[in-house]
């Protein structure tokens, strides 16, 4: 499998990272270098092997249905680049 410039543009778009046209070639080359290298996993016979889903073998603990967080409006908005009246403010979203 090989990544072309169009694919790099597509995944950069999915990842919401602006990429200049003149960067595409180098990025494609880098990604292909890594992808070629990880291709070697193809050699491993994994038939009948379950994928690893967690690094700890314990049952998941759960929380009780209790409200334990009070109003944190100031704390959750204080680092925001743009906020007004307790809202986060972002460039217009069109639906």
């Amino acid at each position: 499998m090989s990544v072309d410039q169009k694919t790099v543009r597509h995944i950069a778009r999915l990842a919401r990272i602006a990429v200049r046209d003149d960067e595409l070639e180098a990025l494609a080359k880098e990604l292909n270098g890594i992808l070629d290298w990880v291709e070697q996993l193809g050699e491993v016979d994994t038939s009948g092997v379950e994928p690893m889903t967690s690094a700890v073998a314990v049952a998941m603990k759960m929380r009780d249905d209790v409200v334990a967080v009070q109003n944190l409006q100031a704390e959750v908005t204080r680092n925001a680049p743009n906020s007004e009246d307790g809202f986060y403010v972002v460039p217009k979203v069109v639906e």
Binding site: F87, V89, P91, K92
Partner: peptide, 13 residues
């Protein structure tokens, strides 16, 4: 997201 608070911005709750 509220879209009617501002002409160019959306407000997020």
């Amino acid at each position: 997201s509220l879209h009617d608070q501002h002409p160019a911005m959306s407000f997020v709750d």
